[in-house]
Design a protein around this nucleic acid. Structure first.
Length: 700
DNA sequence: CGCACGAGAATTTTT
DNA sequence: TTCTCGTGCG
């Protein structure tokens, strides 16, 4: 069977078929990079006869992996199932489960989520008598994460005392993880890299397995992830990374934009292919995006841009009037304006799930929720409190975690207390102490403690033990959960202590959890509880389905998605960009890239809003329009300069006097290419020589 | 042990 | 504004 590449353009075809040396694909927003990756995998399998189980494809989210598998399936059928496809974390976990004997943990290790990590550190900070106001546990969490993403940790070196008593905190934290038999997110990757680095035969083994590696969203990988790829790939050159430096928005959590900028230095004989034809947005939306991002200096390609080619010429004719800016009095007015527009769109039969409201911070979702509720428009808040970190879900999972990993102290605490069953901190501590001094697991310790106790305490412990036994007695995970509910009377407890509405919601969530478990049960023959729990911690609400609702989410969560209509809200100085980012050029540029990501999510319609005042922590504050609004203002029809600019750029010649939003007056030195994509060297009166795209200039 | 209450803090983005 | 944490009482 051969793969049909006729639906791909030349650039895309080149990217698919080039497999000789390391390949860097710079793929602008909406240029069909997923299509390229899928076709490339199909090409590797069908044309180059590579076994699907020897292909590794790394994606940024589980959702992306799932989608890719589905689309790949459509081309090559169920061979798609055998491809290693997932996030760095899920792939590393899969490796680590197999290589558990090479780890400092016991076989059935658990995974600690971010919340539990923080509370563990809170306890440690308290135990070490550190002033938690002066040195917030969050700070330590962040530092630990940083350290674990360095080669020092991978190479098992001790950390420096970065901040007050860091070494002590770190040591205590590691001890805690070891005692509870858990690893954190960072460990998943660091341990894998450590194993690959130190164990030659294992490295060769996996190098042999992964005969071709593909990586999506490469601009958001960090150094350790790069090492992972490097070690797996060896010198084979059988690797293809895809990304867009203009969409790098995770620098704050250690993403290394240099990974993509320096790819050709990290690998030998790198071939670079750029995808520059945008298939997503109308020309004016694209123009706005290009105009905005042209204000950034740190870009791989000042010469690279998304552009529209012949395919979209028809769009050019009616490709304007799709952008609007709305000025609002406050966030309530903003919500009304946005929802008014949403109603109009719905009347025009735009599907609800083709509409997204985007904002910088999660806190901004509230006013939109209120307004959408009022008008009975179904919506879904993506992100925020993820499904699996909701209280009721964590409660139920605690029971499962405890029986899965009977060293998980937090699970014990949580299960023992929720719902309340007469077991308090004192007894729990006794159990933990017994476990640690007798080197047994918590379940054994629980049993022993029960035997020592008398009266009410003994009875309470007995009943707790019975509950756990009931759970273990069930085979299917869905049945285990039902056993928890039944044995603890969890629903009754909710109804008793929560408001009606709240209780109903939570019970509903639990139903959803049971469904998820049932689906998992169906798909895996051996009811693997560890696997199920891993899924729950690795899955965030970004992976949830949106169905027939309008989507509300942060700009970060919007990455990789597209919508018919997009509302970019809260474009105010200090909010977007955030104040703290405004002082530092690198951070400011990341904010601008974030805005660029937002704009390029829109296919047909784009609405910007900003307010004059906004409630911040219960205080009303004045706000002014974001600099980003200024930067794209002249791309919007209502403002006088209109889109003539884009027409005029085709007339550009050397010595033309021009004006630029940021640099002011200048004169063109030379022009390369033509039309929107033309690259020009401009000498500015104030700013000196700059290379830029013609479209970011106005002719004077 | 477990609840209720009050003070105080925190607010960026997430695999 | 909203959540978290600590304290004190039944």
């Amino acid at each position: 069977m051969s793969i049909n590449l006729s639906s791909l353009n030349k650039q895309q075809q080149d990217a698919v078929t080039y497999c000789d040396t390391p390949l860097l694909v710079i793929a602008g927003a909406g240029t069909g990079k997923t299509k390229v990756i899928i076709h490339k995998i199909a090409y590797l399998i069908e044309e180059l006869q590579i076994d699907p189980k020897n292909i590794l494809s790394v994606t940024f989210t589980n959702k992306a992996a799932k989608e890719m598998k589905l689309r790949l399936n459509a081309i090559i059928g169920n061979k798609a199932e055998q491809v290693w496809m997932g996030t760095f974390h899920s792939i590393c976990l899969r490796i680590l489960r197999k290589e558990a004997h090479n780890l400092p943990l016991k076989k059935g290790f658990g995974i600690i989520d971010q919340d539990d990590r923080l509370s563990a550190l809170k306890n440690i900070v308290k135990e070490l008598n550190i002033d938690h106001k002066k040195y917030p546990p969050k700070q330590y969490l962040w530092m630990i994460s940083n350290f674990k993403n360095s080669m020092d940790y991978v190479e098992n070196k001790d950390p420096d005392d970065f901040i007050h008593k860091f070494t002590d905190v770190f040591t205590a934290y590691q001890k805690y993880l070891e005692f509870t038999n858990m690893m954190d997110f960072d460990d998943m990757i660091a341990y894998t890299v450590r194993i690959l680095l130190t164990n030659d035969s294992l490295r060769k083994f996996y190098q042999n397995i992964f005969q071709y590696i593909l990586v999506d969203e490469y601009q958001d990988t960090n150094y350790i992830q790069f090492m992972f790829l490097k070690l797996l790939n060896g010198d084979t050159g059988k690797i293809c990374v895809v990304g867009d430096d203009d969409q790098s928005i995770y620098g704050w959590r250690g993403a290394e934009i240099r990974n993509i900028l320096d790819f050709d230095k990290h690998f030998k004989n790198v071939k670079t292919i750029k995808l520059t034809v945008n298939y997503r947005s109308t020309p004016d939306i694209l123009f706005a995006a290009n105009t905005l991002i042209a204000n950034n200096n740190f870009r791989k390609g000042k010469e690279l841009t998304t552009a529209f080619g012949k395919e979209q010429e028809s769009l050019l004719k009616n490709g304007t009037g799709n952008i609007a800016i709305g000025e609002c009095h406050d966030e309530i007015h903003e919500a009304k304006m946005v929802v008014d527009n949403i109603e109009d769109l719905l009347k025009e039969n735009v599907a609800p799930n083709e509409i997204a409201v985007l904002y910088r911070t999660n806190a901004q979702s509230r006013s939109f929720e209120v307004e959408l509720n009022k008008r009975n428009i179904p919506y879904k808040v993506i992100g925020g409190v993820s499904f699996y970190s909701r209280r009721e879900i964590k409660d139920i999972l605690a029971y499962l975690k405890l029986i899965d990993n009977p060293y998980d102290v937090d699970a014990l605490k949580r299960a023992a207390k929720n719902p309340p069953k007469g077991i308090g901190n004192v007894i729990i501590q006794k159990i933990i102490d017994y476990a640690s001094s007798n080197a047994v697991d918590l379940l054994e310790a629980l049993n022993a403690t029960q035997n020592f106790s008398k009266g009410k305490t003994a009875r309470c412990l007995q009943s707790f033990e019975n509950t756990l036994n009931n759970i273990m007695g069930e085979e299917k995970i869905a049945d285990k959960i039902k056993a928890i509910l039944k044995s603890t009377g969890y629903n009754t407890y909710l109804k008793q202590f929560e408001e009606q509405n709240e209780a109903a919601k939570r019970i509903n969530n639990i139903e959803e959890l049971i469904n998820a478990a049932a689906i998992f049960d169906e798909n895996s023959s051996d009811y693997d509880l560890s696997d199920f729990l891993a899924t729950t911690t690795l899955t965030t609400s970004a992976d949830e389905e949106t169905e027939k609702s309008v989507s509300l989410m942060t700009l970060h969560s919007a990455k990789g998605l597209e919508f018919h209509s997009v509302f970019l809200t809260g474009l105010e100085e200090g909010l977007f960009p955030l104040f703290r980012a405004m002082e530092n050029e690198m951070e400011l540029e990341e904010e601008r890239r974030l805005c660029y990501v937002g704009i390029t999510r829109a296919k047909k319609k784009l609405f910007f809003t900003y307010t004059n005042t906004r409630m911040v922590y219960g205080k009303r504050q004045f706000s002014s329009p974001s600099m980003f609004v200024e930067e794209i203002k002249h791309c919007i029809p209502s403002s006088e300069s209109d889109n003539e600019v884009s027409q005029n750029t085709s007339e550009l010649k050397a010595n033309t006097k021009v004006f630029h939003q940021k640099y002011g007056d200048g004169i063109i030195l030379n022009v390369k290419g033509n039309g929107e994509k033309a690259k020009v060297d401009v000498f500015f009166r104030e700013a000196g020589l700059k290379k830029m795209l013609a479209e970011s200039l106005e002719i004077l």
